[in-house]
């Protein structure tokens, strides 16, 4: 209905939230801000609602049907068929067919009403959370969700700017605000969320990592000793690694209680990282370099990657090569 109203007004702005992404050409050269593997398939998402998928290890791509034109910045598939993507305008998209068709579960406009109602029903004790909702969504859907991670097809989390944290227990049919369930009074940007070794972590500003404490049902703050921003979490059973600004990497061998810094030899901001099938850590930075280390995260070695590209995401292909995403598109890079 909103779409029709906007269209009939003619000159009124077509809000990116109300119109499906345009079909575009040269798919692998689009600005792509995240890439993920789901079974045999690769899915990448990016600017203006573009989502693309490949069933032949990145050789050919086709465009998925996305109901919004918002910039998408993160994508995660807990199962081969179910996946979630998040991005600007506070959108959360869900696919049940491995990334071919996406449906909107939440956006910044709907969040204001739904979250206000949620806290209103919870009662007066939620004043602080109410203020957080008002602050974040009061002036429209201007804040992005920056990362999403699902533990399985039902339970998942999304984090975003100015402390936005939402969670679902029913595969995204309902999303709950978790403002009151994190020690984040300064409303730090929450840049990344990831489950590592059975634990759940959030990477945030000012060198803060939040760890989910199952007993209290809350994210608790863990100081790493670093002062800059972390953009994401990666790791294995052996170690948790937080990465961020200017090539900073911090490692914890005790599930995020204590942290130590790791020298990487690169000063470029690390934007994404994964644990590959062989148990190696693979990170990419905004200079287009690839940083590779073992599962323990004791050291990382800088490898030449896609020089000059501001890499935004990485997956490892079946033949061991890296598929790197960036605002300049995708590139397959031989591992060296």
């Amino acid at each position: 209905m909103a779409a029709m109203a906007a269209a009939s007004a003619g000159a009124a702005l077509k809000d990116p939230l109300d119109f499906p992404a345009a079909k575009v050409g040269a798919l692998s050269s689009r600005p792509l801000l995240a890439v993920a593997r789901t079974g045999e398939r690769l899915v990448a998402v990016g600017s203006r609602g573009v989502a693309i998928l490949s069933d032949d290890e990145g050789k050919t791509w086709e465009q998925a049907a996305v109901p919004v034109q918002s910039d998408l910045v993160a994508v995660h598939f807990p199962t081969p068929t179910d996946g979630w993507a998040v991005g600007h305008d506070g959108v959360i998209l869900h696919t049940a067919d491995g990334g071919r068709n996406w449906q909107k579960q939440l956006d910044g406009r709907a969040a204001l009403a739904s979250f206000s109602r949620y806290y209103h029903e919870k009662g007066a004790s939620q004043g602080e959370a109410m203020r957080a909702v008002e602050k974040n969504y009061g002036s429209g859907p201007s804040l992005p969700l920056l990362d999403v991670w699902f533990q399985d097809s039902q339970t998942g989390y999304a984090v975003g700017a100015f402390g936005i944290l939402v969670a679902t227990r029913d595969g995204g049919r309902t999303w709950e605000p978790w403002f009151e369930r994190i020690d984040n009074p300064d409303m730090l940007n929450l840049n990344g969320v990831r489950g590592v070794g059975g634990q759940l972590f959030i990477a945030a500003e000012r060198g803060v990592v939040f760890r989910y404490d199952a007993a209290s049902g809350r994210f608790v703050k863990s100081e790493t000793g670093y002062g800059g921003s972390f953009f994401g979490i990666v790791g294995s059973d052996k170690a948790v690694v937080a990465y961020g600004l200017r090539g900073s990497v911090y490692r914890s061998g005790d599930a995020g209680r204590t942290w130590s810094t790791i020298a990487t030899g690169s000063e470029s901001t690390i934007s994404a990282g994964i644990l590959d099938d062989k148990g190696s850590l693979v990170l990419v930075n905004v200079a287009g370099e690839v940083l590779v280390g073992d599962a323990g995260g004791d050291s990382l070695k800088v490898r030449p990657g896609w020089s000059g590209a501001r890499a935004s995401g990485v997956v490892v292909l079946a033949d061991g090569k890296y598929l790197i995403s960036s605002p300049a598109g995708l590139r397959i890079q031989a591992a060296q």
């Binding site: 600005p31 801000l33 910039d71 859907p141 605002p327």
Partner: peptide, 21 residues
Amino acid sequence: ARTFTAAGFEGSVKWETINRD
């Protein structure tokens, strides 16, 4: 403006956007 918006957010690639604020 897309590229430069990221400048206000620590150069994060994810902030290459046109923001409503």
